[in-house]
Design a protein around this nucleic acid. Sequence first.
DNA 1: CTGTTAGCGCTTTCAT
DNA 2: ATGAAAGCGCTAACAG
Lengths: 347, 347
Amino acid sequence: MTARRGSGPTMHDVGKLAQVSAMTVSRVLKDDPGVSEATRERVFAAVDRLGYRRNQTARSLRLGGSGMIGLVVTNLANPFYSRLALGVQEVATDYGLRVLLGNSGERADREPGLIDGLVDHQVEGLIVVPAGSRQQHLARAMRHVPVVLAARPPAGLDTDCVLVEDFHGAREATACLLAEGQTRIAFLGNPPALYTGAERLRGFWAAHEEVGVEPDNALIRQGLVDAATAERATFDLLGLDEPPTALFCTNNRISQGAIRALYKSGTTLPVAGFDDFDLSDVLGLPLTLVSYDADEIGRQAARLLIDRLEQDGDAAPRASRRVTVPTRVVRHGAPSADGPGHPPTGA
Amino acid sequence: MTARRGSGPTMHDVGKLAQVSAMTVSRVLKDDPGVSEATRERVFAAVDRLGYRRNQTARSLRLGGSGMIGLVVTNLANPFYSRLALGVQEVATDYGLRVLLGNSGERADREPGLIDGLVDHQVEGLIVVPAGSRQQHLARAMRHVPVVLAARPPAGLDTDCVLVEDFHGAREATACLLAEGQTRIAFLGNPPALYTGAERLRGFWAAHEEVGVEPDNALIRQGLVDAATAERATFDLLGLDEPPTALFCTNNRISQGAIRALYKSGTTLPVAGFDDFDLSDVLGLPLTLVSYDADEIGRQAARLLIDRLEQDGDAAPRASRRVTVPTRVVRHGAPSADGPGHPPTGA
DNA sequence: CTGTTAGCGCTTTCAT
DNA sequence: ATGAAAGCGCTAACAG
């Protein structure tokens, strides 16, 4: 609630200048065929002279659609979510929709207020990366507009969502380490209450079971929330009597913390992790990363949402859909292995 | 323009259920003191039962303020701009304003349409990272709402802006290299048409002049647009008969491309550059980075804008202001120099 | 304490 | 080819 502007010229003003009614101005601006050429020109001239712009708020009220969708992410500072936002933006733009942005800052308690606010602003739909496990407020929002979840699944809600192959990706990356003969792999994970944390641990575990290796519980650290906590946990692991011989990290920030710890302690260990990141290829570290297209999550989410908007009136509401974005394992070697070579050879 | 919803219950509906007029509902929702407790309760009950939410579009029309500001960045995929967006978001939220997001994708030709669209949506103000040097459309937008520029200055426009110390930062980082005795420093720059490109080159040059070293024009490469072009330019420089002995890069993506080229060619060279980035401290490269708080640019821009909104009605429009966000040089050594040591010692 | 009237800027419908 | 009236959902201003 801030200041208000004098708002500027209205259709009426334009009409007065062009010596027609507001209605005719409306017709001209809508490209209605039934307007004489002379009138058109006068109207356009007046529009130009006044710098007139159609008031979308008034149109929304009259037409019943705001032309906006809401996007709520947990942390715009994480490249993962800003890419996701970019993907949403891209598809939304293609459909003439604007994006009203919300950032929960991983604070689940702020999410309901944010979402209610977006609903109040008449967004036609919502794309949400839910910050917590309580999703009651999402059910509330769904009474008003379609909601699509991104990166994390619905909990007790029947709605569309877009996920990455958390389980599969974690299993595959872990399997790579195991295939190299690693048997003491530490697990550095985000809070298991988060779906991604749980799934990725499951994948880590499954890979072990498949080759008959028992994960050592002493090497499993969960609840890491950022690079700093991951760095400390890594130092802790390195100090054990029986330290790990490799690391698995469940997201980009954790990988970065672990890598920093290794660097500072002058240790080199194979590291596997979820999420690729800038310069992962030039660290000179044996790195196995689960990579995927974060933009694509946003694009798919936007498509699901727009699908819902377009089938809006239908009597039979379509069943909710779950789309999965594929992951792929990317490997970077230590410099000795496949390191610096000829320029054009680079991956 | 997509589907429209049936919109849901109105104040009238709520009133009917609570057996009062819409006006009374409005009063209750506004916390107007003059309403009996009994009525309040009935209204709240009805609101709850219907899942009623106040239609902000209608309010905006009536009250004359949309409660939204527009933000247009050039590339949300660049952490720099997503942090900027985060800063804007933060301050906007504090003032009860929502952020309507636009991404020009560095395509200057898309910017006018984006901005007109935001103006149509009745944003109360705009924060723009201008993509090109033509800013006519910004002047147009300024007829409707206050505009604050971020990261790049106005060109022939009288408006507030927030900049980083481009010149100063570049000069200081370059001076660091020169102080180490480097005399053949290559310059890897973005297009000089961009303000930041020009300013940073100016700083680079000034630092040379100050110590009486003549920059070698053969080592100056401009017009680099991403990591890939920077990588190629770096290979090119390394292949010269008289190659550079150090590199200066004008932004994060260029630094990354240069670093990739060095890595692939197995060369180690001191690198200086604008913008800090993740893991810059663990590359084991002598790195001199101009670091600054990208969030702060967004926050300051939002504050300038909100200031304008609040002094809105004033007869005497305040003079336009230019805020500068400070930079600071961060240095990382090669591992041999100050590298891996004890954990708690890390910067 | 509560209701009625009017109108924010626009567009749909019906006249002319 | 153009205009007048009505109303989208809400609230300020005025009754009562």
